[in-house]
Design a protein around this nucleic acid. Sequence first.
DNA 1: TATTGTTATACTCTATAACTATA
DNA 2: TATAGTTATAGAGTATAACAATA
Lengths: 140, 140
Amino acid sequence: MTGEDQDLFRLIFELNRRLTGELERQLAEFDLTPAQAQLLRELEEPAPMVSAAERMHCDPSNVTGIVDRLERRGLVERKTTTSDRRVRRLELTAEGRRVRVEVERIMAAMPALEALSATDRDTLRDLLARSMEDAATRPG
Amino acid sequence: MTGEDQDLFRLIFELNRRLTGELERQLAEFDLTPAQAQLLRELEEPAPMVSAAERMHCDPSNVTGIVDRLERRGLVERKTTTSDRRVRRLELTAEGRRVRVEVERIMAAMPALEALSATDRDTLRDLLARSMEDAATRPG
DNA sequence: TATTGTTATACTCTATAACTATA
DNA sequence: TATAGTTATAGAGTATAACAATA
């Protein structure tokens, strides 16, 4: 591990900071936090709390609060299922689906990385994907 | 902007999530949060609160709390300056400098991206750097 | 008047532990 | 016994506004 690798971490963190900052600004126009937006995105199909928590990489007790805030705004509903009455199926409302489309639009229109050519972006995408594919199969 | 660019964002966010997660695990052994570690790193040289806040990209009122927690543990001290008595100069203690070395060590030893070859890492570093250089000079 | 820093306040995210209802 | 979800609790980061001390 060389000093240049530290630069690499810094670059990734810095790029993420900028992208996240820009994303937050855009989401703020819809009064959404990143976590709320992420949950909306995960709910293209209805899903129980526990699987939502898995996709969000967080504790289920956490999802309760995020859903509370989205439900208060009428974007998400907790439905019960007949098969297992413990389970709450999270489901977007009509308004929730509309907002979800906006979130997708924001993600697609993020004005970053445009400085790179299409070829460079392809290369970048390839490098990032490979770095994580391998990391997933490695023990360390 | 194409659909592939959404994948690019996802890849960057996902890579950041993994790196941040690993970093948090390592920092937790020293009872440090990322924000606290970042502040330690910024204080290689003593600095006033306001400039620390600028480097942290956050509000000065925020730095107060982070410094409170570090000061409580004896890692940082608030010194007064003679020239401008409004200013508190943040200064690492001897223990703070020791912990700071550990933080640097953790950053340098992060076991990620090792899946890529040295050449790939060079390419990645170049792409990331260029993407942000250009973004900084752009209006949008 | 403007700046440095703190305090008061509030919100979101985060986790752990204890709990209820159900399986 | 185990699982799904909530509630209680706590702590960290974040911002805004009001404030005191100083410039």
